[in-house]
Amino acid sequence: MKDVSIIIADDHPLLLKGLYEELIANDYNVVGQASDGMNALKLILQYRPTLALIDIDMPFLSGFEVVKMAKEKGIPTNFIVLSFHKEVSYLCQAKALQINGYLLKEDSFFEIERCIHAVAKNQTYFSPSLDSLTLHSANDELKKLTLLTSSEVTILKLVAKQASNINIADHLCVSVRTVEKHRSNIIAKLALENSTNTLTHWAITNQKVIQEL
């Protein structure tokens, strides 16, 4: 693993220090460490490491934002996120961003090593501590979203921003009736209850996932 360069980022000093020391003690090549998202991104752009282990909740830029911005710049780094979050919405965001590994901060260093080795081989690794039903739910939600057309995705993003049908129609230069038809199709594809504001509530709740589409 000496040929595998690693950058780590976490805004908790003790967790960052502990992770760094464990990695160094086990002969991993840690080329940089950061305590916030902005510095993590700078290091990733500078060193283009093989792997980056980053916390999701960090100042300035979240771990997900770091991943998205690095990928947009064509950085080939594989990403492993570290988090306390087990919710479907977070797993959906990770999968939508095609993040290679998702670990929980409760996981042992042994689990971190297993993840690093898997991701270094371009495999995907999600913590075994995650509930299988939660993972299946995340997969199911993403599968539903892949059924949407590009026009429907655009409208869904605007719905998530609480834009009205009239505003969406004006923005896209289409009729209100066209927007209503798209909304109806989206509701059907996402298997949502067809009632007033159902789609709006769903879109707001899943806004972060939608923006990654």
Rank of each mutant, 00 (worst) to 15 (best):
residue 23 L to H: 00
residue 24 I to W: 06
residue 26 N to M: 02
residue 28 Y to I: 06
residue 28 Y to F: 14
residue 29 N to F: 06
residue 31 V to H: 03
residue 34 A to F: 04
residue 35 S to A: 13
residue 35 S to G: 13
residue 37 G to F: 03
residue 38 M to H: 12
residue 38 M to W: 02
residue 39 N to H: 15
residue 40 A to G: 08
residue 41 L to F: 06
residue 42 K to Q: 13
residue 42 K to F: 07
residue 43 L to Q: 10
residue 43 L to S: 09
residue 44 I to E: 09
residue 49 P to M: 01
residue 50 T to Q: 12
residue 52 A to P: 01
residue 54 I to A: 06
residue 56 I to M: 02
residue 57 D to P: 02
residue 59 P to Q: 05
residue 60 F to G: 00
residue 61 L to R: 05
residue 61 L to T: 01
residue 62 S to P: 04
residue 62 S to Y: 03
residue 64 F to I: 04
residue 65 E to A: 05
residue 67 V to M: 01
residue 67 V to E: 01
residue 68 K to P: 03
residue 69 M to L: 14
residue 71 K to I: 04
residue 74 G to A: 03
residue 74 G to V: 02
residue 75 I to G: 01
residue 76 P to L: 04
residue 77 T to I: 01
residue 77 T to A: 09
residue 77 T to F: 05
residue 77 T to M: 06
residue 79 F to P: 11
residue 79 F to W: 05
residue 80 I to K: 02
residue 80 I to D: 10
residue 81 V to S: 03
residue 82 L to Q: 14
residue 83 S to Q: 06
residue 88 V to N: 05
residue 88 V to P: 11
residue 89 S to T: 15
residue 90 Y to S: 11
residue 91 L to S: 06
residue 92 C to K: 10
residue 94 A to I: 05
residue 95 K to P: 04
residue 95 K to L: 12
residue 97 L to P: 05
residue 97 L to N: 06
residue 98 Q to P: 01
residue 100 N to S: 15
residue 101 G to R: 04
residue 102 Y to D: 09
residue 102 Y to P: 11
residue 103 L to T: 08
residue 104 L to G: 13
residue 105 K to H: 07
residue 105 K to M: 09
residue 105 K to N: 08
residue 106 E to G: 14
residue 108 S to L: 13
residue 108 S to G: 12
residue 108 S to K: 14
residue 109 F to R: 03
residue 111 E to N: 13
residue 113 E to Q: 15
residue 114 R to N: 15
residue 116 I to C: 09
residue 116 I to E: 10
residue 121 K to G: 03
residue 122 N to H: 15
residue 122 N to Q: 15
residue 123 Q to V: 05
residue 124 T to N: 13
residue 125 Y to M: 07
residue 126 F to H: 09
residue 127 S to M: 11
residue 128 P to L: 08
residue 129 S to A: 15
residue 130 L to T: 04
residue 131 D to L: 01
residue 132 S to Y: 10
residue 132 S to D: 14
residue 133 L to C: 02
residue 133 L to S: 11
